[in-house]
Every structure is written in C-alpha cells, then in structure tokens.
Design a protein around this nucleic acid. Structure first.
Lengths: 206, 206
DNA sequence: ACCTGAACACCGTTCAAGT
DNA sequence: ACCTGAACACCGTTCAAGT
C-alpha cells in the first residue's frame, strides 16, 4: 500500500514542471515535522507547544495543522514511525548475532522504545479515538517480529520454549512502565533479568 | 496534629468579633474548593479549567490561587482528601461485617478509589516535586489500614496467611490501572477474584 | 486578612492572502 | 496544491483595588 508517485507520466503538467515537485515539497515538510516532533516530544513531553515543533521543522504553524489537524494525529504519526523503526531493527540484529543474542538485543531495543514512550501511556489508555488504532498497530507490527526472534532462538535450543511471545511482549512493556522514571537504566536491568530467565530453561543445556 | 482553633480565648479580638470568623470564612472556601475540584476532576479530568472549579465553588479565581498557588497543589489536596476518606471507611466496615467480609468490602472501596484516580497515575509517576510526597502519604495512610484488616481476617482463620499486605496493596492498584477504562466494573471483578483467592487458602477450612 | 476580577501572557486553531 | 502568519478564542496567572 505504498505511494507510487514514481513513473507516472500523467502526473507531469504541460509546462514540464513535475506535479510531484510540490508533493515532494509537502513530503519533505511532513518528514521534517515528524523528525522535529519526535525530538520535541522526547525532550519537552507530548504537550509541547505546536509553535516550537513548527519552528524546529522550519515550517509555518498552518502547515502543521494542514498535515495533522489535531495534535493527536501528529502524536500518532510519530508513534507509528517509531514502531516501524523498532520492528525494522530486528533484521539487522538477526544478521549480526546468534538467535538468543539477537532476541536479547532486540528486547533491549524494544525496552528503550517503550521507556521513551512512557509519556504516551495515559493517552493510549484514554480511549481517545485518535489512539485506539495505535494499540492494534503496535501489536500487529511488533508481535510477529518478536515471535520470529523467539522461535528462532527456541529452534536453536538457546532459550526455553514455554513462553508465549504475546505474554513476553506485554510483560516487558509492563516492566518498563512500572520500573520508575530512571532514564531507562532500571528497565534495561529488569529486562536483562527476563532474558537470562529465558536462557536458563533452554532445551540445549550444553 | 489537627488544628485546634477551638477554645482559644486569645484568638478573640477586643471588639468581640472572633478572629476565627475570617478564618472560618477561608476554611469554608477551601472546603468548597476541594469539593468542587473533586467533582470537576472526576467528570472533566484534572486538566479542567480553573475558572470552572472557582465558579462551581462560588469563589473568585484569585481565591483559588491564594490557597493553591499551583494546579498541582489543588490536585494533591484533593488526592489526600480522598486517601483519608478511603482510610476512614475501614472502621465502619470492621464494625458492620466479619473480618473477611470487611476486608473484601474495603478492597472494593479501595478499588473504586484507585479506578477514580487513574487519571492521576501519569502525574504521580512523573517525578513532579508537587506529587512525590503523595506516594508516601498514600502508603503511610492505607498500608496500616489494610494490614489491620488482613491481620484480623488471618487471625480469625478466614483468609490465607502467606500474603504481604504491601504486595496486596500494590497488586490491587496495578490490577485496577491495567484493567482497562471500563467504568471500574472490570477492576471490581478482578479484585473479587483476588479476594476469593485469599479466602481459598484460609487456615480455618470448616 | 482575605476576596475579587480586570489585565496580561501564552497557546491552540483558523483562514484570507500569498506562491 | 501548498504554505504562511496575522488574528481570534481560550486558559493560566498576577496584582491593584476593594471589604
């Protein structure tokens, strides 16, 4: 379902200027906006002034509202973007490490993501229609990734095989949320403990 | 540590009008403010306009800021007031029911309190200095109450004796927080399950 | 002492004017 | 089509003027 702006002759206007040029302009703006919003949300919280985000992205305030009519739309877009990044990180880790180490490394990456998103937890549980879809997006995107990593590690006999990936996904998230607001160090330690627990019951006890 | 404004002759000014009269005026205002704030917070959330609370309490906006310089101060005051009410509820329950039933009834009362305060959870975990003291207030006030009820029920052989009151206090709170935003019905069901679990392992198995 | 509300600052949101 | 920012509405906060 990606946008296929490429290779479409009909999109060129008669004067030779590409219609896409204005679209790429808009796309550059949304990208800059998402990037700026991510940084501002991280440092000043999700209630940060829209003006600050617009300024950081180098666009007018009106442009923010053109692309994201409500603040929640911008927040949701940033959230999806980071979910994607977290999901995508798995491939590189699988290529670089053995199954159990890749699983461990990804869980820490996932931990950092959750810890950074703690400010969003209340909004996600608020029932606000703008956020309800984020729950399923989160699960549909990350559960298969974790399942893949977990199955590979189980297959290799490097971790125990009596843990459900969904339970693990929820457990780690809950750990991170309740593990205080210490910049994620506590959360990482707790998760490492869980990972060691996974390794402890490995079928291959060599 | 209660205020003893009563029976203090030195507080009366020479003209016969009680100095206390202006104080009681102020006290009436703070009471009205706390009452109004509690209702407004419950219906419109803790971000509700201060003007609305002032209007509901029948005072000027300046009066709100005189008594509660920051919004957090008002929120904290409302929170303490409800913690007190929850703690105080135990005595009547103990007088009306047997030990295990009193414990069960109080845990549901506590559940309602937590469920109503879910909107505050993010603030409580934010590390905001205005809220840090609420954690200890919560624990110091409610833990002894629960311990008393639990010990009495254990003593009577009506519930199992291998549960720490602190763990129970936290567990029920976490249950309520994570039990969705369904108006508390889910939370009450989950807590009832826990209570049944407590009864299941009672020493007196008659 | 305490209360009040006009006044100020700030932020979300819109929309007429630009390109 | 898309971008801009002045303009408007709303809310938090202060403080000079009242009692």
């Amino acid at each position: 379902m990606g946008q296929q702006d490429e290779d479409m002759p009909s999109m060129r206007s008669s004067d030779g200027s590409a219609t896409r040029s204005v679209r790429s302009d808009a796309k550059r703006n949304t990208d800059a906006l998402l990037e700026a919003a991510m940084e501002v949300f991280a440092t000043r919280g999700v209630d940060a002034p829209v003006r600050e985000i617009a300024q950081k992205a180098g666009v007018g305030i009106g442009t923010v509202y053109r692309h994201f009519p409500q603040r929640a739309d911008l927040i949701a877009a940033v959230f999806r973007r980071e979910v994607d990044a977290c999901a995508d990180a798995a491939a590189a880790l699988s290529a670089s490490y053995g199954p159990a180490d890749a699983l461990a490394a990804w869980l820490l990456r996932y931990t950092d993501f959750i810890a950074a998103k703690r400010g969003l937890a209340p909004a996600l549980h608020s029932g606000d229609p703008a956020y309800v879809s984020l729950h399923s997006y989160f699960k549909e995107k990350l559960l298969p990734v974790l399942r893949g990593l977990l199955d590979a590690a189980i297959e290799a006999g490097e971790v125990r095989d009596d843990i459900e990936s969904m339970e693990l996904l929820s457990a780690v998230a809950n750990l991170c949320i309740s593990a205080g607001k210490a910049d994620g160090a506590v959360a990482r330690r707790m998760v490492s403990l869980v990972v060691d627990g996974l390794r402890y019951g490995a079928t291959d006890k060599s």
